[in-house]
């Protein structure tokens, strides 16, 4: 089992995504919640940075948070999966430990 990393800040405001990307092992999972969901939308200045990591890590977005901010799963970078709260719970249960990059 691998580690789940949770990011909740917009990549455009704070450096938590960078910290998380640099400090997570390949094979780990990264979940965007709250304001961080905007980081996973395609065609932004940071999309390429995330795309470069897609082959080694699993990326997820909490869809209810994404929808609240006016986006849908169709707006996501290809390869990033949307999950609902039940899926969020599964991610926490299925990974060995959780680090929230606050």
């Amino acid at each position: 089992m691998a580690m789940l990393h949770i990011v909740n800040k917009s990549v455009f405001e704070r450096g938590t995504l960078d910290s998380c990307l640099k400090s997570s092992l390949s094979g780990s999972s990264i979940l965007f919640i709250e304001d961080a969901v905007v980081s996973a939308v395609n065609n932004t200045a940071v999309s390429d940075k995330i795309k470069a990591e897609l082959s080694s890590k699993n990326f997820y977005v909490l869809t209810p948070d994404l929808n609240a901010r006016g986006f849908t799963d169709a707006d996501l970078i290809e390869g990033i999966k949307g999950v609902d709260y039940a899926g969020f719970v599964d991610l926490v249960a299925d990974n060995s430990n959780v680090q929230s990059w606050l």
Partner: peptide, 19 residues
């Protein structure tokens, strides 16, 4: 901050899944 709301939704979903 949304933290308390997120935690609440998470807790509810976890309980609904039988955790």
């Amino acid at each position: 901050h949304q933290a308390a709301d997120s935690a609440y939704q998470f807790a509810k979903a976890a309980l609904e899944k039988g955790h």
